[in-house]
Design a protein around this nucleic acid. Structure first.
Lengths: 339, 339
DNA sequence: CTGAAAGCGCTTACAG
DNA sequence: CTGAAAGCGCTTACAG
């Protein structure tokens, strides 16, 4: 077992100073060709690599960014990580992944722990609990310390920082309009409880569209789901007690569950009922029938967020630079669950 | 914007030495009650938190572990990350996630970059390309430097280190036997190319089981798939040209594709054909029909791997301690795709 | 051309 | 009880 070699050891071995070794390895012209060669050869032989931690301490930057997400099991978030990784690696950054598990406390602990020099900046999507409490002090604090934060997807307007979102309302509007254009009148909505920012916006898009088309909004057709609960029966009730034409679901889990429940009670998708989901994940793609859905390009969102963060890290800190909110385009991916 | 406060600043402000501040904050009895109080109050007021990087440099440990996986989009790997996070966080470690994208070069770069002090140890699953090349020098090197590595799932016997696996052959054997016990005779296998270690083992389990039951192995019923290719037509051919009773697929993507292709050519699952998959992911769960599958508990694998790594990091480095290979139990989850 | 010194932010053995 | 010094591994302005 050969431990890592340091400048000090090389210096000792070669009987020169640490400074000389350091400069030689950087190929500084300050040092004689001869010495440089000697040092470099030796360093190569011993496979010298500078200690990153020492560099971080010296440079006051770690070349590491952290992404905090509520859940990794949600395919969308996994997708975002992938996008972040891509551009981070390209630009020489490492990515630390933290899961808040939808918990406010875990989110706070993670941020406080890492804000002490471990990383250069955050990319984050709020946990549900944080959205519910509306307590963002931990984020404000980090930003006040001069550490940049980029929020994506589940954001809040109460924090000033860079953001990457989709236009949730517009996307919902387009999806709903699509169903209306197909001639459907009784369109149900499966959505989250209102404190989830993106769920609320999608709900608003749905309602607006009905109104735009002079369709009365029927509260019985709007089901708000806490996704910790068992919601199968709610969907079954919805399907049996109303003669619904179509369902718009704000995530793919809800959408696929509609298919399952419809199958169970003998309704055929899309013959008897059409379904549109949200998030173009693997469930939507591989379900039978596959699900028409609003694509929410996680890779693109992650890549954009990383790019914004790194740019902020690498430009001179001119405070005058305004925060930006980037809106990523969505599109409706037509598949088998609508007709 | 309030920058982070350091010991030095507190010392200056309070007109004491840095040592005194440091000791006071650690509540050392070496320091007078009075001074301690004063320093602690001041530190609290200014929200002092020690700089992690400085601590890392001093302690020669970063309290960060890195997990290198081939892909995050595979639900199984996302699941493993989740397991690693859980135990790592419990024990005060952060988790750096690196994606090799199935590329040998990316795997090497990631490891070399991080082995220089940035992290304390690795948890990894080999990229396909690495398995194909059988070049493990980067891993050997890291281990020789005294940095512990725990491999999981896609491992190699050429490296001596701690490992977490499932018994792929046994799991495949059980799945195949299950189909035979149902009375099926013509059982096809959808598997990966042989250089993928787990795929090969599962193939072996299948073949052994047929032989155990005196069923002739028909090479036409064994389809080896490079998963970069379009394999739908291969499956369609398999289904149309042979009157198959059942299919055993070594991952859930292959399994769900069988359902789709079967549907397309008018075969009903499970009435006309039964299917067993591998990896208990969301596709298997939400597919219609849902897929009977070999569960491969990613959370447990991740948790175990993290636990082994941290134990090795925290026990005195007695080299005599032997490397262990932990085998995680699998089970067959019966669902709708078999009958 | 080479090296001693200071510094990044911390800890701790040692001296007073 | 307090503080100066050395050290973790590096860089760089400065002196010689």
């Amino acid at each position: 077992m050969r431990r890592k070699v340091t400048l000090k050891q090389i210096a000792k071995e070669l009987d020169v100073s640490i400074s000389t070794v350091s400069k030689s390895l950087k190929n500084s012209t300050e040092i004689s060709e001869d010495t440089r060669q000697k040092v470099q050869a030796f360093a190569k032989l011993y496979n010298y690599k500078p200690n990153n931690i020492a560099l971080s301490l010296k440079n006051k930057k770690t070349k590491t960014i952290c992404i905090i997400i509520p859940e990794i099991i949600h395919h969308f978030f996994a997708t975002v990580i992938s996008g972040v990784e891509q551009v981070a690696n390209e630009r020489g950054y490492n990515v630390l992944v933290c899961l808040s598990d939808e918990s406010f406390d875990k989110e706070v602990i993670n941020m406080e722990m890492l804000a002490n020099g471990s990383i250069d900046g955050f990319i984050m999507s709020l946990s549900k609990e944080t959205q519910q409490k509306k307590d963002f002090h931990h984020i404000v604090e980090v930003i006040n310390q001069g550490m940049p934060v980029v929020m994506f997807d589940r954001i809040t307007n109460e924090i000033l920082c860079d953001k990457v979102i989709i236009d949730d309302e517009l996307a919902a509007l387009n999806a709903t309009q699509y169903l209306i254009d197909k001639g459907f009148k009784k369109i149900a909505l499966l959505t989250t409880v209102d404190y989830v920012s993106v769920g609320k916006l999608r709900t608003e898009g749905y309602i607006k569209t009905l109104k735009n088309n002079d369709i009365t909004v029927d509260e019985k057709l709007i089901i708000k789901i806490e996704d910790t609960e068992n919601f199968e029966h709610k969907i079954a009730d919805l399907l049996t007690q109303n003669s619904i034409d179509a369902v718009f679901a704000v995530n793919e889990l809800f959408a696929v569950t509609v298919i399952k429940e419809a199958n169970r009670i003998g309704l055929k998708v899309p013959d008897d009922i059409s379904i549109i989901g949200f998030t173009d994940g693997i469930i939507s793609k591989y379900s039978s029938p596959s699900i028409t859905t609003v694509s929410q390009n996680g890779i693109k969102m992650g890549a954009k967020a990383a790019q914004m963060l790194i740019e902020r890290l690498e430009t001179e800190e001119e405070e005058d630079e305004k925060y930006r909110t980037e809106v990523i385009e969505t599109e409706l991916v037509e598949r088998e669950s609508t007709k």
